[in-house]
């Protein structure tokens, strides 16, 4: 799938941050930075997401939810730790309730430091995450787990309409048979 590494969908979750980074993640989709023009959408559903943006140092109550969202995101996935708190725990590292960084709970691929992380650095982090995303996807294909590159998405190749029609018709037949039985 070529479209993967061009228009990833983000899911953002606030794992006990001070709100500063969350607002900056949202500010990336605003007219000034406008990442939506590249097809990067801030989605609310983990099952639709490719990149997981986590802010904040993760407290004990939040840890299971971070894990749960991470598990719900389909493979391949990239985790972005946004803000100093998400990287190390930051100023709250000594607080009794803070685990100290997202990497204590789930594996993190890209660290975006800053307090609060600026929209420019968040976008830079997402671009770095895209390269990792492609890498993970290629690895999955090699292992025979992922979808191989779809030749129909290449501009040079013509779309093989017959093949897709055949697929559809066979699906319909299968469902008809099920209904009949």
């Amino acid at each position: 799938m070529k479209s993967f590494h061009k228009s990833p969908w983000l899911i953002h979750y606030d794992a006990s941050s001070c709100n500063g980074c969350d607002i900056e993640v949202l500010a990336c989709t605003m007219p000034r930075y406008d990442v939506e023009r590249f097809g990067i959408i801030n989605t609310g559903n983990p099952m639709h997401a490719d990149i997981f943006c986590v802010t904040g140092g993760v407290n004990t109550q939040n840890a299971p939810i971070v894990k749960q969202i991470y598990d719900q995101i389909p493979e391949p996935k990239v985790v972005l730790a946004v803000g100093t708190c998400a990287c190390t725990g930051g100023i709250f590292k000594e607080c009794y309730n803070i685990l100290g960084g997202v990497d204590q709970v789930i594996p993190v691929d890209v660290y975006v430091p800053g307090c609060a992380a600026r929209p420019e650095s968040i976008i830079d982090g997402v671009v770095k995450a895209l390269a990792l995303y492609q890498e993970k996807h290629d690895k999955m294909v090699q292992e025979g787990r992922g979808l191989p590159e779809d030749p129909s998405l290449d501009e040079d190749n013509d779309v093989d309409e017959n093949a897709s029609n055949d697929d559809n018709s066979s699906d319909e037949n299968a469902s008809d048979e099920e209904n009949a039985s």
Binding site: D14, S16, S17, G56, G57, N59, Q61, N62, I65, F92, E94, C95, Y96, N97, I98
Partner: peptide, 14 residues
């Protein structure tokens, strides 16, 4: 509630 509780009031000790 309690998902963002960091306990920063206690940081006055440090």
């Amino acid at each position: 509630v309690g998902f963002i509780h960091r306990g920063l009031e206690k940081l006055v000790e440090k």
